[in-house]
Simulated scan of single mutants.
Amino acid sequence: MSNMPKITTFKSLADIAVRFRSDLKDSDFVLLYAYNGTGKTRLSMEFKDRGKKGKKKGDTLYFNAYTEDLFYWDNDLEHDTDRVLKINTDSVFFNGFRELALEDKIFEYLQRYATVNFKIDYENWEISFSKEVPNPAYKPDNDKPETIVKSNIKVSRGEENIFIWCIFLAICELVIDGEESYDWVKYIYIDDPVSSLDDNNAIVVASDLSKLLQKGVGKVNVVISSHHHLFFNVMCNELKKKKCKRYFLHKNGAAGYTLRATDETPFFHHVALLSELKGLLPQENQTIHDVRIKTYHFNMLRSVMEKTATFFGYHDFSTCIHGIEDEVLYARALNLLSHGKYSIYEPVEMGDDNKNLFVKILSAFLKKYEFQLPEIITDEDTTQA
């Protein structure tokens, strides 16, 4: 156990925010991996609030779920034609927004991720979107154009999120370039910028972000938190030559939180996830009915198997259970039961039959692959913050 990364316990997210600020005195970056529902967004706000004491603007430019709330739709319910995204200009997020004319910077990023165009109306503080769409009147033998521009459209939720992200990247450029309107920014805190993106775009976002932020080394310190394993690992690899702290955050019920340093093991969270699943197995004095296994745990188990299959070079996760008894049944169960839209915020407990199936699959997997699974908390390697 002495070779395992150190775990530190914290009573509150505010205490972790203090820790991160201390880390950034001699580090350029803090990277944090945590599952959804752990408190990442609240932690970003605790960090921000620590910098507002006695200051009007604070010292942190942040991107999280609250950033997206600075924009809201006017759907033109009366005429259903002119839909625009409104801007809440009360936030310091938009300091100098009008004067600096950020459209070119925003579009430079946006064209990498989406095919929409936009226009900012600074008089009414609203954004209108347009997009090229197939022309229904076009035929190969007529002179109609193949595409037409559809204006004042309501873009998808994913396109809206990536547009707001591109605004944030443009503002980060201003911070790094020393623009006076953003000279109050000492820290940049980014929480889960890729929640609506596929894996390919997640890699592109991580790559673009790392290149931009590396230009700011020595000018601004950065915290990045995410539940997205691919995004997190790309950031770890891109920033590995910089002064960077890496952590895995785990919520420990009423006891608070644990923070495990993963400086040399950026893939630790996969093993930690499997360790957490192992903790669901019934103990000697428990029946299957006593074990609180939720429906979304099948999704988690499949995710672990997919990462294991990738590690071994397998084409399909089901290869991980090849050769064990009832492998066909187990593979079908994982395919079926891991595709439901199971929320970790409103978890539903499995029925006893599915619990039994889950336990059998997980036990067979753990028997076939002898992972060295850490305890999320241990008495001998935990220190009190």
Rank of each mutant, 00 (worst) to 15 (best):
F10D: 10
A14H: 10
D15K: 15
D23T: 06
S27M: 09
D28Q: 11
D28L: 11
D28E: 14
L32A: 11
Y33T: 07
A34Y: 05
T38D: 04
R50S: 11
K52Q: 12
K55D: 09
K56R: 13
G58S: 06
G58T: 05
G58C: 05
Y66F: 06
D69Y: 04
F71W: 05
N75L: 12
E78D: 10
T81C: 05
N88K: 13
S91Y: 05
G96C: 10
F97I: 07
A101C: 12
T115E: 14
V133C: 12
N135K: 13
K139H: 14
D141C: 11
V149N: 08
S151N: 15
K154F: 03
V155T: 10
N161R: 10
F168R: 02
I176L: 07
I176M: 04
D177R: 08
D177Q: 08
G178F: 03
E180Y: 06
E180N: 10
S181I: 01
Y182F: 13
K186F: 00
D192E: 15
P193L: 10
S195P: 01
S195A: 10
S195M: 02
N200E: 09
A202C: 06
I203C: 02
V204A: 05
L209V: 01
L213F: 09
L213T: 03
V222L: 01
I224V: 03
I224D: 03
F232K: 00
N233Y: 06
M235C: 09
C236E: 03
N237K: 09
L239F: 02
R246V: 04
Y247H: 07
H250G: 04
H250P: 02
K251A: 14
K251E: 15
N252W: 09
A255T: 08
G256M: 09
Y257W: 09
F268K: 05
V271Y: 04
L273I: 07
L273N: 00
S275D: 07
S275P: 00
S275V: 04
E276I: 14
L277H: 04
Q286A: 03
V291T: 12
R302P: 02
V304R: 00
T308K: 11
F311V: 10
Y314S: 08
Y314C: 05
C320D: 05
E325D: 14
V328N: 08
L329H: 06
L334F: 13
N335M: 12
L336P: 05
L337T: 12
V348G: 03
D352Q: 15
D352G: 13
L357A: 14
L362S: 05
L366Y: 00
Y369R: 08
Y369W: 15
E370L: 10
T382V: 13
